[in-house]
Design a protein around this nucleic acid. Structure first.
Length: 603
RNA sequence: GGGACCGUAGCUCAGUUUGGAUAGAGCGGCACUCUCCUAAUGAAAAGGGGGAAGGUGAAGGUCGUGAGUUCAAAUCUCACCGGUCCCGCCA
C-alpha cells in the first residue's frame, strides 16, 4: 500500500501543479514523525522553474490539492508539505494485511531468473565465521529477491581441482591419522599440517603436484577417490549450512566445468576475436584479453591472460567460461545427479559425469557473492563478456562484494589454521548454550532446545547481516552472539508476545476508529514493509530488513505497553487493537523469514 | 606507481546509491526508581558506602581534514590524512 499511497499523492500533486508525475513521485519522502506521516519537497523543484520562493509555493500547492480519502490533511511547514494519513487508510491497511497473510509484502512475479552463487568454500575445511558471512549474505539476498518476486537459483561452486584439495587428498592418502569426527573439521586441521610439509619438504610438494595433475586430468582411480572425498566434505559443510537455514539448488564442480564446458568455452573466446594470441613479449604463447580497448582504466593491467601457453585456462579464464554458462551462452550443458535431500525438503543437485539434464543456468542476472579482494578479477569477467559482444550480460554480472571477518590483529587463514576455534559450528553451539540459559525453565526440554537453536541462528544471522557488506567485521563472541538490545531475540520476543495475544484474543476486526499515536506509528511501519522489501532487493542489501525488523519490534513494544489489548473493555476498540496486533505479528514473521530467522510462538 | 573500499557519540554501527526540516539506534557510562548497610540507647539519613533483574530520564557529535558546487551537503566534486585490499601464465 505504500506504493499506491505515494502514487496517489504524486498524482494529486501533478494534477494541480506544473510538476510531472515522476517529479512529484520522487519528491515524496518520509519525514520525522513530528512533522507528519509522509511529505513532499515538490516546492523546491517548482521554485527553480517558477522563480518563486518555495515557502510561498508550498502554500499555493497545498491549497489547491485534491486529496484522496487516505489523506486526512496536508499541512505546510516552511517549504515542506506534510500529509497526515486518515483512520480510513489505516483500516484499509489492516484489511490489506489480513487478506495477504504470509504473502503480505511479497512483490509481483518478475521476468527472468537470478542466479546467486555463494559461498564457494574450498572443500577441504569447515566453514569458519568468515565463510559464514558470505553464506548468510548470499542466502539472505536470495531470500529477499525471491520474496520481492524474482525466480532465484542458488548455486555453489565447488573447486575440487585446486591445490588445496590436492594437498588434503594427499594427506588423506599418505598420513597416518585417519578421519575422526566431522570430516570437514578433520580435513581442515590436517590441511594445516600438510601445508607446512608442502612448504618445507620438496618431496611432498612433488608428490602433491603429481596428484594434482592426475585429478585435473581425470586419471583413475585418483580422480574418483578425490571426488568422493570432496563430496563427503561438502556434505559435512552443509550440515553446518542447515543449522543456519542455508540451502542450495545445485553444486557445480570445477572438474565438471573442465570436462563439459572448456573446449566450447575456449573456442568461443578464440573465435570471437575477443582475445588475442600473443606471439612475443612476456605473455608469448598465451591468449590474452586486451582490456585497454574498452573503457577499462588504462592504469590497471590492460592485458589479462585467460589461456596459458600450455593451453590450460587461468582462474579468470575458467570464471569467464562459468559465467557464460550461467547466462546460458554455451551449447554444452552439465548432467546432474542428486547430492542430498535438504531439511527444507528440497533436493540439492550436483553436476556429475552421469545423470540427467536439468534446467539450471540460463539466468538473466548473475550475482556472485565474493570478497572485495576479487573486485579486479570480477571486473575483468564483466569486461571480457563485453568484448565477446554480450553487453547485456555484462551489465547483469553483479559482484556482491563483502569485506572479510577479522580477528583483532589478524585475518583468517586456512593454511595457517588461524580459523581453529572460530568455526561456524562452534559459534552456533556457543549460541545455543547461551540462549538456553535465558529460556523459561518450565518449558519441556525438547522445545527449549528448539527455541535455543532458533535464537542462536537468529542472533548470529542478525549480527553478521547488520553491518553493510563493505564493512570489515572484527569478530567478537559477545557481539556475534548478542541476545540483547538491537538483536534478533528482541524481535523474536516481540513476535512471541504478539502470538500469545493472538492465541488468546484472535485476530480481531479492523474498523476506522480513531487510532492513537502509538498505533499509527506502528501501522506506518507495517505500511513500509513492501517498500523495504523492494529497496532491499534492488540494492542487494539485506541489512535494510534487519534495521526494519528492529524498528518494527520497537514500535510494536510501544504499542503493547501503551494500548492494553486483552484487558480493553470497549469491544470495538479491543477488536481493532487485536487486528493491529495480528497485522504486526504477520509483518514481523514475514520480515524475519526473509532474513532466515524463525518467528517463535513462545520463548 | 596506479586503482578500489572504509573513517559518523567512549565502543559497535544505521543514514551517503536518490542532497532537504533538529544526524538516529544499541552497548557502556551517568542520574533517578528499588534495596541493604552506616550516628555511644531507639527512631531518623542531609551526607557517605554496597547491590541490582527490571523501569524512567538526561547527557554524549569539528559526520577524518580542507576547499568547491548548491537555496540546501554526513550525502555530490576535488585535494589531503589514517586504515584495509587489489594490480601474476600463482592459487
Amino acid at each position: 500500500m505504500y506504493f499506491l499511497l505515494a502514487e496517489a499523492i504524486a498524482k494529486s500533486i501533478s494534477d494541480s501543479t506544473s510538476a510531472t508525475f515522476t517529479e512529484a513521485l520522487s519528491s515524496i519522502e518520509l519525514p520525522k514523525k513530528e512533522f507528519g506521516d509522509i511529505s513532499s519537497t515538490i516546492s523546491f523543484h517548482l521554485s527553480k522553474k517558477q522563480k518563486k520562493s518555495p515557502q510561498l509555493l508550498a502554500k499555493d500547492v497545498a491549497g489547491s490539492l485534491v486529496l484522496p480519502d487516505w489523506i486526512e490533511k496536508a499541512e505546510v511547514q516552511g517549504p515542506y508539505i506534510n500529509f497526515f494519513l486518515s483512520d480510513k487508510f489505516f483500516a484499509s491497511l489492516l484489511e490489506h494485511v489480513f487478506s495477504l497473510g504470509h504473502n503480505f509484502g511479497r512483490g509481483q512475479k518478475k521476468d527472468g531468473k537470478v542466479i546467486v552463487e555463494f559461498p564457494s568454500v574450498n572443500p577441504n575445511k569447515p566453514w569458519h565465521v568468515g565463510h559464514l558471512r558470505n553464506a548468510l549474505l548470499g542466502d539472505s539476498v536470495a531470500r529477499t529477491l525471491e520474496f520481492a518476486g524474482y525466480e532465484v537459483e542458488r548455486i555453489d561452486y565447488i573447486d575440487d581441482l585446486g591445490l588445496q584439495v590436492a594437498q588434503s587428498f594427499w594427506g588423506y592418502k599418505n598420513l597416518a591419522s585417519k578421519p575422526t569426527g566431522k570430516l570437514d573439521l578433520w580435513l581442515g586441521q590436517q590441511y594445516v599440517e600438510v601445508a607446512k610439509l608442502f612448504e618445507s619438504d620438496k618431496q611432498t610438494e612433488v608428490q602433491v603436484r603429481v596428484l594434482l595433475k592426475k585429478i585435473e586430468e581425470g586419471i583413475q582411480p585418483e580422480a574418483s577417490e578425490c571426488r568422493a572425498l570432496v563430496e563427503k566434505c561438502v556434505s559435512a559443510q552443509y550440515e553446518t549450512a542447515f543449522k543456519f537455514g542455508i540451502y542450495h539448488d545445485a553444486l557445480v564442480f570445477e572438474s565438471d566445468i573442465v570436462k563439459t564446458l572448456f573446449a566450447e568455452g575456449i573456442s568461443l573466446l578464440k573465435q570471437n576475436g575477443a582475445i588475442a594470441y600473443e606471439k612475443e613479449g612476456k605473455n608469448a604463447g598465451c591468449w590474452v584479453a586486451k582490456l585497454a580497448s574498452c573503457d577499462f582504466e588504462a592504469l590497471e593491467s590492460p592485458d589479462k591472460v585467460l589461456i596459458r601457453s600450455d593451453g590450460t585456462a587461468t582462474y579468470t579464464g575458467k570464471d569467464v567460461i562459468f559465467q557464460l554458462w550461467k547466462f546460458g551462452l554455451l551449447k554444452n550443458d552439465f548432467l546432474y545427479s542428486d547430492f542430498l535431500v535438504q531439511p527444507n525438503g528440497k533436493i540439492c543437485k550436483m553436476t556429475s559425469s552421469k545423470g540427467t539434464k536439468a534446467n539450471f543456468g540460463k539466468a538473466s542476472r548473475v550475482i556472485n557473492v565474493i570478497g572485495t579482494e576479487q573486485i579486479y578479477p570480477q571486473k575483468v569477467i564483466r569486461e571480457v563478456l563485453r568484448l565477446l559482444g554480450y553487453q547485456k550480460q555484462a551489465e547483469n554480472s553483479i559482484h556482491l562484494a563483502y569485506e572479510h571477518v577479522w580477528l583483532e590483529d589478524r585475518h583468517f587463514s586456512g593454511r595457517e589454521g588461524s580459523w581453529i576455534g572460530y568455526t561456524a559450528d562452534e559459534l552456533y553451539d556457543e549460541g545455543v548454550k547461551r540462549a538456553a540459559e535465558k529460556i523459561k525453565p518450565q518449558l519441556p526440554s525438547e522445545e527449549k532446545l528448539k527455541i535455543a537453536s532458533s535464537v542462536s541462528c537468529g542472533a548470529i544471522r542478525f549480527s553478521f547481516l547488520r553491518p553493510t557488506p563493505e564493512k570489515k567485521i572484527v569478530f567478537k563472541w559477545e557481539e556475534a552472539l548478542s541476545l540483547e538490545g538491537d538483536s534478533a531475540p528482541y524481535v523474536m520476543y516481540a513476535h512471541a508476545r504478539a502470538y500469545k495475544i493472538f492465541e488468546k484474543g484472535g485476530q480481531g476486526k479492523a474498523s476506522p476508529l480513531p487510532f492513537s499515536q502509538h498505533e499509527r506509528h506502528l501501522l506506518k511501519q507495517i505500511m513500509l514493509f513492501e517498500k523495504i522489501v523492494q529497496d532491499s532487493a534492488a540494492q542487494l542489501r539485506p541489512h535494510l530488513l534487519v534495521d526494519y525488523c528492529i524498528e518494527l519490534a520497537t514500535l510494536y513494544n510501544k504499542f503493547y505497553s501503551t494500548c492494553p489489548i486483552l484487558s480493553c473493555q470497549d469491544d470495538a476498540l479491543r477488536q481493532n487493537r487485536l487486528a493491529i496486533n495480528f497485522a504486526a505479528m504477520t509483518c514481523i514473521s514475514n520480515a524475519l523469514s526473509i532474513i532466515g530467522i524463525d518467528a517463535p510462538k513462545t520463548m
